[in-house]
Design a protein around this nucleic acid. Sequence first.
DNA 1: TACCAGGTAAAAA
DNA 2: TTTTTACATGGT
Length: 323
Amino acid sequence: MARELRRLLRPPGPFRFHESAARFGMAREERVNLYDGRTFRRAAGEGAGGLFLIEAEAGGEGAEAPVAMTLRAPESLPRGAARAGERALGHMLAFDLDLAPFCAMAREDPRLAPIVERFEGLKPVRYLSVFEALVTAITTQQVNVGFGAAIRGRMTERWGDSLRLGGESYFAFPRPEALARAKPRELRRLQFSERKAEYVIGVARAAAEGEIDEDLLRRLPLEEAVERLSALRGVGRWTAEQGLFRGLGRVEAFPGGDLGVQKVVARYCLGRERAEEERVRRVAARWAPWGGLAVAYLFAAWRAGVPPARPLRKRPSRSASRE
DNA sequence: TACCAGGTAAAAA
DNA sequence: TTTTTACATGGT
C-alpha cells in the first residue's frame, strides 16, 4: 500500500472544522491530538509497525465544506488504514452526531441562541477511547490544563508508540497494556503526584483487563454509566463524565463540578464570574439531554472572546479569552 | 507570598 | 453523614 492516501470526507449536516478542532489546540504541551490552527494531526493504528498519521484540514470555507483527510506512514500504510483512518477521524470529529435537535432547542433559549447562531456546526471532539479520555482527565485533575498536558506529554513520550515522518515524531496515546506495567516511581519522576500515578496505573490495568466495556457504557443510562466508571479509584463524578463525554460522545453528560463549566455558565447565563455546582446544574437542566453539547458551545464562545450579553456583576473585566 | 488551576480520596468532625 | 485536608506544581 502507498505511503500516503487522501480522501475528502463529507460529514452529514453542518460541520465547522476549526471551531471544533480548536478544543484539541488548547494546550501547547499537548503531544497526542495536535492542532495548530489549520491542521489536526493524530497518530492512530496498532503497535509500532501498524501506526500511521491522520491529518485533517478544512476542505473549504463554511459549515458545508468537506474535511480533507490525509493518511501517512513512513514506509507503507498498514492494510485497512483507509477504513480505520476514516472511522477514527469520524469518531474524533463526531461526524455521527446530529446537531439539529439541539440547535432547535438552543434557538429557543435566549442565552444560547446567539452563540449557536454563530457556531452552528461545531461538534464536541472526542478521544479515541474511554481509557484515553479518563487518563487525560486524571492528568488535569486540580491542576491547570497546561501542566496537565505537560505531564501527560511526558507520559506519552515514555509509553506511547511513535512514528517518524518528515523529521517529526508523532505519538499515539499509550496503550493500556503499556501503562499498566508502569511503576508509580517512574510517573513520579515525570512530576505526577503519587496519587495521580496510582490512579493512571489502576485505570490502565482495568482497561487492559477489559473492565472498561465501551459498548455497555454507551448503552447504560448516564447515571449508571457514571456510577460504573466511578468505581475506579481516582475516577470521581467529573472524571467519569469526561470519560463518557470525550470518549464516547455522550453529550447529555453535563460536568457541573467542572470549574471551567461553572465559569462559562456563570458568564453567559447568569451574568457573573462564578457560580456553584448546584446552580449551574439547575441552569443546565433546561438543556437536557444536551447539557454537554451546550457546554461545548459556551466554551467555543469563550475561546473566541465573545462577550456575555450583559456585563458581568462584580470584578468586571478579567481577560477571559484563550489562545 | 499567597492563592488558584476544567478534582479525588481519605481523615476528621 | 457531612466537612475538611493533603496531594504536587506552575503561573500570577
